[in-house]
Structure formats: structure tokens, C-alpha cells
């Protein structure tokens, strides 16, 4: 369904000519139809930039994106239009991503209008009402405004808007981070149900590893613009290889005091360095307790150490 090859996105730094933010640097992965890839990493590691570069909100600096085998990274805006229908995005902030002055009906109908799908108002209404029903909101909500809804309800509206064109690939950029736990579970279950019913492919971005486990078939871990580990979801929890992955897993609080006392946690010290001048060699070496001289000098290669388990770390050369 989706293949990303050496995808890179740099942003120029204002006022400093020639300097760039290495937001995304040489990312490679493949995603099969109907699968979910969970993408995790600390704030600023480039998750949103990767998502936005894949669906061409941002122009890639270099690298390629293949959708159903077609290289879409070089396409012009016009050539891209029919392909846009296949890819939709759900955003983190259900408050700012919906226009406060539009009714729910108009918000959900917007993609239909942009792609001139419906010929009559009745046709459009039918599709919108069907969508409202599918996300668990009554049709009586159609003429109300976004600010009248709770965070969870707004996220349902965002999902309805993203799915109305029946896309095949849906990029969820932290769709639940702003919500309460009880509501997070509602949204995650809703996304899973849609995946089954509509055979959707998801790229699911989150900043911690606990919810990702419930939705993903594969998990990728990002650090400072690089993908450092990628494998089957269960494998990453049972057999993490990269020291950063281990640290991320160890940082997630365990909701059981007994287990929390027992566990010997690996942890990560210090802060994430600046992506403007990322560390040499392995970008994680400044925070890694296993770092050697080689890690400082030489960037580790992205390699498949066991079947479907990719990692970039000199410990696993």
C-alpha cells in the first residue's frame, strides 16, 4: 500500500542561512494494505513532519513515497488531486482542527465538495448522515457548531471527515493525545472497528508506547529524524533491541503499584538534542549508556537483523 524510501525533509532555519532543521532524515519502511504501523518517539523527533511529507502537505527534500506502487513524490499538485482522495489525515487537536464557524454537516461535507463528488444536496446529506451514524453521533447534531461538542465528540467529527471519501490510507497524528483515558479508549475502538469494516491502512502516531500496542501490527521508533527500530508490534515489547526503544518502554508508567515496584527499569537520561545540529555518528549516542567511540564517529546502518526486525545500532551489527 505504502512504501517510503530514503524520505528526507529539512526546514531552513530562519535568520541562519545554510542551517537546516533535520526534521526527517532518510526514512525507509513499507506498509501493507489493512495493516497499522504505530510510530512513536519523543516530541520533536519528526513524526508529524514525516506524516505531512508522506501526504504532501510538505514537499520532500529528497526521497520517494510510493502509494500502491506509484511514485507520488514527484507529482504536480494537479496530478496529485485524484490521489489525495486515497490518503486522509486525522489530527491531534480536535479543538483547533475544526472550523468553529462551520456546522458539523458542512465540516464533514467539505472533502466531498473539494472533490466534487455529489451532484445534489440530497446525495451529499445522505453521505454525511451515514458518516455521522457510523462514528456514533446522532444526525440531530448535524446543524450544530464544533464548539458545542466535547473533545471526544470533536475527534469523532474529525474521523467522519477523514473517512467520508473512503480513503485507503489514513494517517492518525496523535488522534487521542488530547483526550481523557476513558474517551481515548472509545476513539481507539472506533478506529479499530473502521479498519475491520473498511480494510483501512493506518499510520498511527503517538508519543508513548502503551496505546500503540492495542492498535498496531508493526511499530516504528523514531529519534531525531531517524527511524531507529521497526518490527512486529509484539516483538518490540518482548524483544526490543535498540537502547532507545528499551528506554522508551522503561519510561512508560505501569498502572500497577506491585509491578511498578518490581520492575527494573531502563531509563533515558538528559534531553533530546537540537535537530539543527544533531550529534555526529549515531544521533542517540549522547544519551546512550552503551555508546562507544565508534558510535560517535560512524552512523549505524539500517539493517534487518532478524526477519522483519530492523534496527540501526552498532550493538547489533
Amino acid at each position: 500500500m505504502l512504501e517510503v524510501k530514503e524520505l528526507t525533509k529539512h526546514f531552513p532555519v530562519k535568520g541562519k542561512r545554510g542551517r537546516v532543521v533535520h526534521a526527517v532524515d532518510g526514512i525507509n519502511f513499507k506498509l501493507r494494505k489493512g495493516e497499522t504501523l504505530g510510530l512513536v518517539g519523543e516530541s520533536g523527533c519528526g513524526k508529524s513532519t514525516l506524516a505531512r511529507t508522506i501526504i504532501r502537505i510538505y514537499e520532500p527534500t529528497s526521497g520517494q513515497v510510493f502509494l500502491k506502487g506509484q511514485d507520488i513524490s514527484g507529482l504536480s499538485v494537479r496530478e496529485l488531486k485524484p490521489i489525495r482522495k486515497l490518503m486522509q489525515m486525522i489530527f491531534q487537536d480536535p479543538y483547533s482542527s475544526l472550523n468553529a464557524r462551520m456546522t458539523i454537516r458542512d465540516i464533514i461535507a467539505e472533502p466531498l465538495r473539494a472533490h466534487k463528488i455529489c451532484h445534489t444536496k440530497a446525495e451529499e446529506n445522505e453521505l454525511v448522515f451515514e458518516m455521522l451514524d457510523m462514528v456514533g453521533l446522532g444526525t440531530e447534531h448535524a446543524l450544530r457548531y464544533a464548539h458545542e461538542f466535547s473533545g471526544g465528540q470533536r475527534q469523532r467529527i474529525g474521523i467522519a471527515r477523514a473517512l467520508i471519501l473512503r480513503p485507503e490510507l489514513v494517517i492518525c497524528d496523535e488522534p487521542i493525545s488530547a483526550l481523557d483515558v476513558s474517551i481515548q479508549a472509545q476513539i481507539v475502538n472506533l478506529l479499530k472497528k473502521f479498519q475491520e469494516d473498511l480494510n483501512l491502512t493506518y499510520l498511527f502516531i503517538a508519543h508513548d508506547l502503551s496505546m500503540v500496542r492495542y492498535v498496531s501490527d508493526k511499530v516504528g521508533v523514531m529519534y531525531l529524524g531517524h527511524l531507529v527500530e521497526l518490527c512486529e508490534a509484539e516483538e518490540i515489547y518482548n524483544n526490543p533491541l535498540h537502547p532507545y526503544t528499551k528506554g522508551l518502554l522503561g519510561s512508560v508508567p505501569i498502572p500497577s503499584p506491585r509491578l511498578a515496584r518490581q520492575k527494573k527499569k531502563s531509563e533515558i537520561e538528559g534531553d533530546i538534542p537540537s535537530p539543527i545540529s544533531p550529534p555526529s555518528g549515531c544521533r542517540f549516542h549522547t544519551r546512550c549508556k552503551y555508546a562507544t567511540e565508534r558510535c560517535k564517529a560512524e552512523a549505524p546502518k539500517w539493517q534487518e537483523v532478524t526477519t522483519n526486525h530492523f534496527v540501526a545500532c552498532h550493538l547489533h551489527d
Binding site: V181, S182, L209, S210, R213, E234, Y237, L249, I254, P255
Partner: peptide, 12 residues
Amino acid sequence: LMKSMPSINQDR
């Protein structure tokens, strides 16, 4: 609250 929470040490 507890049932709606994911846990890192539970299986999928």
C-alpha cells in the same frame, strides 16, 4: 478508568 487504560505489560 482501569479498564479503559492500556498497559505496557499486557498483551494486545
